[in-house]
């Protein structure tokens, strides 16, 4: 770990000005569960840490339209335990609870979770080339250890995934990220928040430089009461997703009235399955149509030799989850 200094601002203004000063490479420190890990690995080496844990961003408030405004430093465990989240957004509660461990969820924050870096082994090993960590150095993953990596929205320069669970549920819910920067406040729809790599994988998100996330807004979605999150992984608990699905469904008789599907572990961006959703609106709520929609979504997949298993895995996860939600199977 490279030497650094630590500042603990007491107000958002102070934090923004510390971050905006730009004299030395600066990182925001929230729970530290990703950043401190990457500092130890010399994957990130800021010279100044600005602690965002004391800015009063730890509240979960009801919004006037029946949604929730989730503060940036609300801990993942507190968010999952919030009765409003458990009742109105089971997919979000289950995504949070399926992530990491009890200890890490107690530390991890809403904003830190969105901003967590990929778990690609080449990215996390500072002795290896990686276009994300060191632009232009190459991507050994495409031909190398790629079983965990992406197959949707990837490029020749990077096949890393966003590894998180929470953001997958937030993408299904059309959440909105709120931030402040030196030149004012702004918002980004969550679907536009994580970038696809193209030929520049160095930036994970569209968050402007110098911005601090203040909250994530989750709009109301009545049929989210019929929603869940399912995660396939190499051990039953305390492991990142090989693939995951967040889904909510509204069924009228035997017909799908409305549906939300997002996929995790398959792309640099929590992947909203727009194609599958479109096919399913108005379609019969049957295993056949669920499977056909999932297959259509995966038609654009560009798997590597090692992660080709994810194509089938995602189709089965989506089909299984939708059958579970429509009561056809448990």
């Amino acid at each position: 770990m490279k030497p650094l200094t630590y500042e603990r601002p007491a107000t958002l203004d102070e934090a923004v000005s510390l971050l905006g000063r730009g004299e030395v490479p600066t990182s925001l420190l929230a729970g530290g569960t990703n950043l401190v890990d990457l500092l130890k690995l010399d994957v990130e080496s800021p010279q100044l840490l600005v602690d965002v844990n004391h800015l009063g961003l730890d509240r979960i408030d009801d919004t006037p339209n029946g949604g929730l405004m989730i503060g940036a430093t609300v801990r993942n465990s507190d968010l999952a335990a919030d009765p409003r989240v458990r009742e109105r957004y089971p997919l979000l509660a289950r995504a949070l609870l399926s992530a990491a461990s009890g200890q890490i969820r107690n530390m991890a924050t809403t904003a830190g979770n969105l901003m967590q870096r990929t778990r690609c082994v080449y990215f996390m090993d500072a002795t290896k080339p990686c276009n994300k960590r060191e632009p232009g150095s190459g991507c050994p993953a495409v031909e190398g250890a790629s079983r965990e990596l992406g197959l949707l929205g990837t490029s020749d320069s990077c096949i890393a995934t966003h590894p998180g669970d929470m953001a997958v549920a937030l993408v299904a819910l059309d959440a909105v990220v709120h931030f402040v920067a030196a030149d004012g406040a702004g918002t980004i729809p969550i679907g536009d928040f994580h970038r696809l790599p193209g030929d520049d994988p160095s930036l994970d998100t569209t968050l402007p430089a110098g911005a601090i996330i203040t909250a994530v807004e989750v709009p109301p979605l009545a049929f989210a009461s019929t929603s869940t999150y399912r995660k396939a992984r190499d051990r039953r608990s305390y492991a990142f997703a090989l693939a995951s699905v967040a889904a909510a469904i509204d069924v009228d008789g035997d017909t799908v009235r409305d549906i939300r599907i997002a996929l995790g572990g398959v792309s640099p961006r929590p992947w909203r399955a727009h194609a599958a959703e479109e096919l399913l609106r108005g379609a019969p709520a049957t295993a056949d149509s669920f499977r056909a929609a999932a297959e259509a979504e995966l038609a654009a997949a560009t798997p590597t030799g090692e992660n080709a298993l994810k194509v089938d895995l995602v189709v089965r996860l989506v089909t299984g989850v939708l059958l579970e939600l429509t009561g056809s199977e448990r």
Partner: peptide
Amino acid sequence: HGQCGACTVLVDGRRTNSCLLLAVA
């Protein structure tokens, strides 16, 4: 690196991996 739990302590009563928490924080 937060992967084993051997360093677990209680911080403000909540279980926490002390290897991922800077002492200053």
